[in-house]
Write a protein that binds this DNA or RNA. Structure first.
Lengths: 153, 153
DNA sequence: AGAAAGTAGTTTCATTTGAAACTTTAATCT
DNA sequence: AGATTAAAGTTTCAAATGAAACTACTTTCT
């Protein structure tokens, strides 16, 4: 009896494993910051991005954060209301606004960053530097391949 | 200026990369079966599991499918209504039921399995067997570590 | 210039999700 | 046995999500 007849072995099926792992990791990490800072995942990504690339607009944030414009709009609204983030309407195009962390946002980021780093470090604690490099390469290749397979229905 | 002050580099942050990858892969794969068979992810997992382990109860499905009982209840209801799955109340305990694929469910599984396999194969097309083994090991270790870190808030 | 088409971001609405409460049956305690 | 506690699934309710419609502004076309 082959796989097609018996069904496939779920616990070894790559998409299942990736979903399960990413879910655990996200919930874990969220447990570290969402309670303490009241941040959602999209909000955290936006803050992290603006930390290294201040002044991005909502549209520019979408690709590097892998977020759609609805999520961004909502996240930005909450972050603005909680005074983590400031919007500056662009002179050249009044539809969009450059986004900047406020001092409070900066402070929050510098508190969360080490927590996030520490969590990542713990995940990779028993990986050698060579293995980390290897993993990095694997993830890049899988990402590129998944991207390439997008259209092929 | 260190990472904590500048923020961390999102595109290289492991949790972000895992979420992004798993999201792409899931959407991709769902595109291959959800349209054709009207299956959600929980439904697909349950069908796949029952293919190799017929007669499981809802409770027994939860851990190996990484699903909560609410998702299972809803998925089972839909699968039963669409005649993919049959519930047999347990003699010994009338609260729960053993679940079995119907002939129609079996047929569906044997149609989807090769599609899922093919997608996984394509993802891993340019991985050597050694690399696949390596990746397998990495995922196991990350999974175990993430599991272990669950409590440590 | 004025009309038509396009873009940035927001809002609406319908669906998905999950935690908590609930129902039914089973096991344990007195 | 009768009462209490626990377990399997289901239902309810509120929050999260995302596609589609919408608003405000900008660019392109004639």
């Amino acid at each position: 009896m082959n796989d097609a007849q018996r069904g496939l072995h779920l616990p070894r099926f790559l998409p299942y494993r990736l979903t399960k792992l990413s879910g655990m990791v996200s919930r874990n990490l969220a447990g570290h910051y969402s309670a303490a800072f009241d941040l959602t995942v999209p909000e955290w990504r936006i803050v992290a991005l603006l930390g290294s690339r201040p002044g991005l607009t909502a549209r520019e944030i979408a690709p590097p954060a892998s977020l759609d414009k609805v999520s961004i709009s909502r996240a930005v609204e909450r972050l603005t209301k909680s005074d983590r983030l400031e919007k500056r309407i662009l002179e050249g195009d009044r539809r969009s606004a450059a986004l900047y962390l406020t001092d409070s946002g900066q402070r929050m980021l510098s508190e969360i960053t080490p927590i996030a780093q520490r969590y990542e470090d713990q995940l990779l604690k028993n990986f050698t530097p060579e293995e980390i490099e290897q993993l990095d390469d694997f993830l890049n290749r899988l990402d590129a391949k998944a991207e390439a397979l997008k259209g092929s229905l």
